[in-house]
Design a binder for these strands. Structure first.
Length: 583
DNA sequence: CATGTACTGT
């Protein structure tokens, strides 16, 4: 029908919500809304999925479709819209209604959108049920649907189910491999993910399964998690061999991966090599600089290069810059950037960064005033940030206020108690210290175990605090004792202030001396040749004593030590750290 | 129709 073809052409050119509404009105007045399922469905999809659309409006249009005219594809469009939206779990409910009303019957497409909703809401029971339903409907050989299911299992933290599905598939394509690769990295089994990647590049797969750009992006992300620059090199080399490295998304992922593996120079080199940088390219480079403590460089890149190139910054851009200012102690610059935000409305995350910025600098009154003036309710992390600042600067009243807020919010984190206790201990208020200790014993305190790992000879060696699981633990502890003696000779006094003051001083020293990052460093001294660099990854932030120890070991043993903690990089060399002791 | 890069704080 010529009119329908014209209307399709017109619909593809809608660029505002007003266009959509006008189009919707036209379909209604001409009766086409009821008569032409393809036009109606295209309208609902555009309205539900496009950035200028409106999901509620799309769903209203779907509901206004007369029941007799509603097809499977109408349901598919509505379910797809919800699955891609802010509350994907709603798609499961709509699907249940569809099953109850059937006909129309669900098809592979319906299932695939519902599975995506289950994946996005990490709903394992729903995923299992949908898997069973897919088999019952005879859709077990649909590669796309099974790939979506595989992805859902991975996103529901069930890597074994994802692997099993993969192994049982008679036919796969590259998206299947990629879903497994990315899923393993997510689970988080980045090491297994890289093993899979090596299998992919060493076997000669048919064209349909040949690695593509997304393979590279997913593999780079696994390397980033592992903190293994050598593996990024291998991924990069492979991408170059296959001509997959011209893609800007691939280069963005490599910038991010190299930066997260400590190779800032290589990250920036690739960033410079990108001919048409996207917003993500700039954000990755800014975050790389921030993570390595180069806040001033991040600011300069933003102000002197990104803004003049007419790339509009987004929320992530500002987070990267604020984060760079936090790590570099650039209080005034950070405040200036924060106040300059016009095009992007600051979110709770931006406020959090600025509160941290002020708090670390000791400007506690301003930090608290900003919290009070925030257009959001402060979350736990924000109060933890303030509590940490109060501890660093010995502000009992603020610490108590923050701790009370945290308690009211049901937070039971070990760190909250320790910080508050430290504030009292610093003022010799031992009764209060005892009160906190009793509260900790009375409540069910949640503690995130700290761990560190280091890679030696392609093997990951993982340590917990006080860990004796490693087969070379005796040697590791002996080396640690020897290092302790050497750095005491250099004037080191153990910093035990981060340990709860309920044990003897000697025990506190032992507690910090067995921190996982020290064990990993000691293992590095044991297992790598003299003079070679040591790289440690820690899941939490490095503690003050470990930081001081790392500096002195770098000097006493002539080693460059890199520690990536959960927030940033520390590079220790010749007794100094790249963070300048501000972190 | 499926797979993917940038995201404050403990």
């Amino acid at each position: 029908m010529a009119a329908e073809a014209h209307l399709n052409w017109l619909l593809a050119r809608c660029t505002t919500f007003a266009h959509i509404k006008q189009f919707h009105a036209h379909l209604l007045t001409t009766g086409l809304f009821r008569r032409s399922a393809p036009l109606r469905i295209a309208l609902v999809e555009l309205c539900a999925l496009s950035p200028f659309g409106d999901l509620a409006h799309a769903l209203a249009a779907f509901r206004s479709t007369p029941h007799s005219a509603t097809t499977t594809n109408d349901w598919n469009a509505a379910i797809r819209g919800i699955a891609a939206g802010p509350d994907p779990s709603g798609a499961l409910g709509l699907f249940a209604r569809m099953l109850a009303l059937s006909p129309p019957r669900p098809d592979a497409l319906t299932l695939s959108f519902v599975v995506r909703a289950a994946a996005r809401s990490s709903a394992l029971p729903a995923t299992l049920q949908l898997h069973a339903l897919a088999l019952r409907l005879g859709l077990g050989a649909d590669v796309r649907l099974i790939t979506t299911l595989l992805d859902a299992y991975a996103k529901c933290s069930s890597p074994d189910s994802a692997l099993q599905l993969f192994d049982e598939m008679p036919l796969r394509d590259i998206a299947t491999w990629n879903a497994l690769l990315a899923g393993l990295a997510l689970c988080p089994h980045p090491h297994t993910a890289l093993t899979l990647f090596r299998r992919m590049i060493s076997s000669s797969l048919p064209d349909r399964e040949s690695p593509n750009e997304i393979t590279i992006i997913a593999a780079a992300s696994a390397c980033a998690q592992l903190c293994s620059a050598r593996d990024v090199d291998a991924v990069h080399d492979f991408a170059q061999q296959r001509g997959l490295d011209a893609d800007v998304r691939v280069r963005n992922a490599l910038v991010d991966a190299y930066a997260k593996c400590g190779a800032l120079d290589r990250a920036l080199h690739i960033f410079r090599s990108i001919p048409s940088k996207t917003l993500v390219s700039w954000n990755a480079a800014l975050m790389a600089l921030a993570m390595h403590g180069h806040g001033a460089l991040a600011l300069r890149l933003f102000e002197s290069e990104m803004l003049p190139s007419h790339i509009a910054p987004d929320a992530v851009t500002y987070l990267a810059i604020l984060c760079g200012c936090v790590h570099a102690g650039l209080v005034e610059d950070g405040l200036r950037v924060f106040r300059s935000m016009r095009d992007v409305r600051p979110t709770a995350k931006h406020y959090g960064a600025v509160v941290d910025l002020l708090g670390r600098a000791g400007r506690l009154a301003e930090a608290r005033a900003l919290v009070d003036a925030m257009p959001f309710a402060p979350d736990r992390v924000l109060w933890q940030t303030l509590l940490g600042a109060a501890r660093s600067h010995g502000d009992v009243a603020l610490a108590e206020h923050a701790a009370r807020q945290l308690a009211d919010m049901g937070s039971n984190a070990c760190g909250d108690y320790v910080l508050l206790s430290n504030v009292y201990a610093a003022k010799a208020r031992w009764n209060d210290v005892g009160r906190i200790r009793d509260a900790m014993q009375g409540n069910d305190v949640r503690k995130v175990p700290g761990f560190s790992y280091t890679e030696v000879g392609g093997e990951l060696h993982r340590f917990l605090n006080g860990d004796k699981e490693h087969e070379q633990w005796r040697e590791i502890y002996r080396t640690l004792e020897e290092a302790e003696a050497r750095i005491r000779a250099l004037g080191h006094v153990p910093e035990t202030e981060n340990v709860l003051h309920d044990i003897e001083e000697e025990d506190k020293e032992r507690a910090v001396y067995q921190h996982s990052e020290k064990l990993a460093m000691a293992f590095g001294l044991v297992a790598t040749p003299a003079g070679s660099p040591i790289q440690v990854v820690k899941n939490l932030r490095i503690c003050g004593d470990c930081h001081a120890v790392a500096k002195l070991i770098s000097r006493a043993y002539g080693r460059v030590i890199t520690v990536r903690d959960r927030a940033r990089f520390h590079r220790f060399e010749g007794g100094e750290c790249s963070c300048g002791d501000y972190w």
